[in-house]
Computed example of a mutant assay.
Amino acid sequence: MFTGIVQGIATVEQITDRPGLRSFTLRFPPGFAQGLAIGASVSTDGVCLTVTALRGDDAADFDVMLQSLNLTSLGSLVEGSRVNVERAARDGAEIGGHPLSGHIDFTAQVAEVRRPENNQVLRIQVPSPWMRYVFAKGYIAVNGASLTVAEADRRAGWFEVWLIPETLRMTTFGEKGPGDRLNIEIERQTQVFVDTVRDTLDERLGPLMPLLEQFLAEKGLGTELLAGSAPRLDGPIRS
């Protein structure tokens, strides 16, 4: 498990391809790899990878299967690429973000970047039907970072996150531009809530559901609102 608090930026030092497999050597920031062992888990741009070899005090190898390369942004990495990294959480560790598995649900694209004073705003375009799990003020993981959704537009299929200077310093988000691919892991409690509501509605309403969904879509709403309220996602805004 990971906390979604990125601990530093690693650099892809070497890439080795084998049939159905690609190996990455990552060079970590000073101190990151202290006590790291073979078999340990490291979140790499949000993807949980396993250490397969250690290279001195600040580098390690990771094997990535073909499916993971296709389903995440790791397949587009080249030597010199920079990635967000976080080591697996220890028992009793403070969860400064929200619990993450390191299993990516989908990739999205940066649609727009705005830079108001002392901030950076990323508008992220989301493929259907994943927007049903994205709520303003809800949690979401982007390239391994636990962030709070500032604004979401279901009809247009995008959400925005605001990033403070400290987040930009500790991550690669400052390097992202329109068209860049991002790894997204949705918040599991939100997914369970939305899917449970949809299954219940399907059971009770049956043939009426397509008409109801069309009506709500025209109003810019989702079927989860029929449960009485959107998922409660209390907590501080993180950027």
Rank of each mutant, 00 (worst) to 15 (best):
Q7L: 07
G8K: 13
I9W: 00
I9F: 00
I9T: 14
V12S: 02
V12T: 10
V12H: 03
E13D: 11
D17Y: 02
D17G: 03
R18M: 05
P19F: 01
G20Q: 06
G20S: 06
L21V: 08
S23N: 04
S23C: 08
F24P: 03
T25W: 01
T25N: 01
L26M: 09
L26D: 02
L26W: 06
P29F: 03
P29Q: 10
P30D: 15
A33L: 03
G35D: 11
G35H: 08
A37D: 03
I38W: 02
G39W: 07
G39T: 08
G39C: 06
G39Q: 08
A40K: 07
S43P: 13
T44Y: 00
D45A: 15
D45V: 13
D45E: 14
D45F: 04
L49W: 10
L49A: 14
L49P: 05
T50V: 11
A53S: 14
A53H: 13
A53K: 15
D57M: 02
D57E: 08
D57I: 02
D57H: 05
D58F: 00
D58S: 05
A59W: 04
D61W: 09
F62L: 09
D63G: 11
M65G: 10
L66W: 07
Q67W: 10
Q67E: 15
S68V: 12
S68A: 14
S68Y: 06
L69A: 06
N70M: 10
G75E: 06
G75Y: 06
S76W: 07
G80P: 02
V83T: 13
V83A: 05
N84E: 01
N84D: 01
E86Y: 10
E86L: 12
E86P: 08
D91T: 12
D91M: 13
A93E: 15
A93D: 15
E94H: 12
E94S: 06
G97Q: 08
H98Q: 03
L100D: 00
L100F: 08
S101I: 08
S101H: 11
I104E: 02
D105W: 09
F106I: 13
T107Y: 02
T107L: 02
